[in-house]
């Protein structure tokens, strides 16, 4: 298959480096990922644009360089999976498991996302401008997720570490079986899951939340006092027969 790799000069946002363009209408996801994986640590090809993603899966997965990738359109499952250091922006919606197991760097989705966004992520930032479906932040292990819209049911299920910030509402069973992750929700919470409870919003939490809002570029627009904090009641850390009705 013919590669569509081409230089697109004179773009305003690419003042230091030329932006590289990859068209998935004429190239494969394999070619795209292989190219991004093969870049050297000191590459000057730092800005990439992907056109015509057309819902394809596994776009820009396993990146491990401080490069910027903008995807113009909707993506399928696992976009930016296991991302490390890279800055990936999706100018559209994302399918299941966007930025799953993200290690570091930043993934920004301009639209809505499907289930399991940021699942098991161990670091970095995931920012979703729209809504997230069920199980957002499931088993998260340190990632910081910020959703400007609402999140679906079972979000932050078994969440171990990191933060989930929701400017809208949260669905049923938020934070079920949560460990030490922190959840900040501005809107309503349909219900809390097992062992998840509302907690006091102290100054340290307001400072942390401010930082999360800052990293999403909305620190001045949203008041940290309008959020409520949820976390683990730590009652189910050791299995006890008296808690059987919680399961």
């Amino acid at each position: 298959m013919q590669s569509s790799l081409a230089v697109a000069p004179n773009r305003a946002e690419s003042t230091l480096d030329s932006e590289r363009v990859f068209d998935l209408r004429t190239s494969t996801v394999r070619e795209l990922n292989q190219k991004l994986h093969s870049l050297s640590e000191d590459t000057n090809e730092k800005f990439w644009r992907v056109e015509n993603p057309r819902g394809r899966h596994a776009i820009a997965v396993g990146l491990d360089l401080p490069i910027s990738v903008t995807i113009n359109g909707h993506v399928g499952y696992y976009c930016a999976g296991m991302n490390k250091r890279a800055d990936v922006t999706v100018q559209g919606n994302a399918g299941v498991g966007v930025a799953e197991n993200i290690v570091s760097g930043r993934v920004h989705v301009r639209g809505d996302v499907s289930q399991s966004a940021g699942a098991t992520g161990i670091g970095g930032n995931l920012i979703i401008d729209g809504n997230a479906s069920a199980r957002c932040g499931i088993s998260m292990k340190g990632v910081n997720i910020l959703v400007k819209g609402s999140v679906g049911h079972m979000s932050a299920f078994m969440a171990q570490a990191g933060t989930l910030t929701v400017l809208g509402d949260a669905g049923e069973a938020l934070g079920d079986s949560i460990y030490e992750a922190r959840l900040y929700v501005r809107g309503s919470v349909a219900s809390l899951g097992a062992d998840c409870m509302e907690k006091e919003m102290r100054d340290e939490h307001k400072a942390q939340l401010f930082k999360e809002l800052e990293s999403a570029g909305i620190a001045g627009e949203v008041d940290v006092s309008s959020f409520r904090r949820y976390g683990s009641a730590r009652q189910l850390y050791h299995f006890h027969i008296d808690n059987i009705s919680s399961y």
Partner: peptide
């Protein structure tokens, strides 16, 4: 946490292959 059923598994395997 991020897939259920054989159709999803196929996509998950594709992702793992792409990463590696």
């Amino acid at each position: 946490p991020d897939w259920t059923g054989p159709d999803d598994l196929e996509i998950k395997i594709e992702e793992l292959r792409e990463i590696t």
